[in-house]
């Protein structure tokens, strides 16, 4: 009983703090950081479905992020259509792309799957660069300034974006938690343990993995939409780049792949660490924060390879 009360109390305090946060901390930069923390935690939760529970390491998720972002932005630029609809279309397209990629890719195991996802991500990025008349190419697309306009997800302050990210995070968190315990989660766990054994027991591994990938893609694309409108500028390298895909994976891995809180903890740690390093070491030489980032990844993998390997399969 006492443990429960403690837990609910903690939850309540945390909820109040989170909701009141923008009012307590006036600092635009910190608001932006927390926005990014919740955004990456959300993407991470989505990535985890296929990368953690599904044990298929994807380094191409930026493709979905970019599809979401670009679709919503292009609809605004060409059709003045609100991203509330444009973004939805983006999510649908991202899911379609995921289906296209997943169907052949799931036949691949281990590193081959990973390499294929890299290829997919790079193809999307290259195409975005090439069709510049339509997408603005390397120039990127800046969003015209509309002041405060909810329909176009434009606000003159950071707080609304923070709340949207927080809301998305909460929704996705409970969604993933639900899936974890539902049939889907158990099938994924079985596949992760031993895909062949699961098959022989009647689990339709392809369907299950595909489902996980589709949801993962949808979540990532939705985050892409929110991101695009919060920074008012997107270009292929920043939303479809391999670095972004890697960052997503690193966030989850550092935090604990295949666990519910992993992406959350990972997001807090990675973003917090990166920003702190930039803040204090940024003057010495840039790249310092990325050195730390690489080191972090090396350390996590080296010191806990046992923990990680129980979620992967040797193929």
């Amino acid at each position: 009983m006492k443990k429960d009360v403690k837990k609910y109390l903690l939850t309540a305090v945390a909820a109040v703090l989170l909701l009141a946060f923008p009012l307590l901390v006036d600092n635009l930069y910190i608001q932006h950081s927390f926005f990014m923390i919740f955004l990456f935690a959300t993407i991470g939760l989505g990535w985890n479905l296929i990368g953690g529970y599904g044990a298929q390491l994807s380094l191409g998720h930026a493709a979905f992020f970019a599809v979401g972002a670009y679709t919503a932005v292009l609809f605004v630029i060409y059709q003045s259509l609100t991203p509330l609809i444009g973004g939805l279309v983006g999510v649908v397209i991202a899911v379609a792309v995921a289906g296209l990629i997943g169907y052949p890719c799931f036949r691949l195991r281990g590193p081959y799957f990973t390499l294929a996802t890299i290829a997919a991500g790079e193809i999307v990025r290259t195409l975005l660069l090439h069709f510049q008349d339509f997408t603005g190419g390397a120039n990127g697309i800046p969003l015209p300034y509309k002041g405060d306009n909810f329909l176009f997800l434009q606000f003159s302050s950071k707080a609304p974006y923070y709340y949207l990210a927080l809301a998305m995070f909460v929704v996705v968190f409970f969604l993933v938690r639900y899936l974890e315990h539902a049939k889907m989660g158990r099938y994924l766990a079985a596949i992760r343990e031993d895909q062949d054994a699961a098959e022989s027991l009647g689990v339709q591994t392809h369907k299950v993995k595909m489902f996980a990938l589709l949801i993962s893609a949808a979540i990532t694309a939705a985050c892409g939409v929110l991101y695009a409108f919060s920074v008012s500028f997107i270009d292929p390298d920043s939303v479809a780049g391999l670095n972004l895909s890697i960052e997503i994976a690193v966030v989850v891995i550092v935090g604990g792949i295949g666990t519910l809180w992993g992406p959350v903890i990972g997001s807090v740690v990675v973003i917090f660490l990166t920003e702190m390093t930039n803040l204090y070491l940024g003057d010495i030489r840039s790249g310092a924060s990325l050195v730390l980032y690489g080191l972090l990844l090396i350390l996590v993998i080296s010191i806990r390879p046992q923990g990680l390997s129980s979620f992967f399969r040797r193929n």
Partner: peptide, 13 residues
């Protein structure tokens, strides 16, 4: 560019 925006945020704040 992502970092640039972030860095600008930080500086102005």
């Amino acid at each position: 560019p992502k970092q640039a925006a972030s860095v600008a945020e930080r500086t102005f704040s």
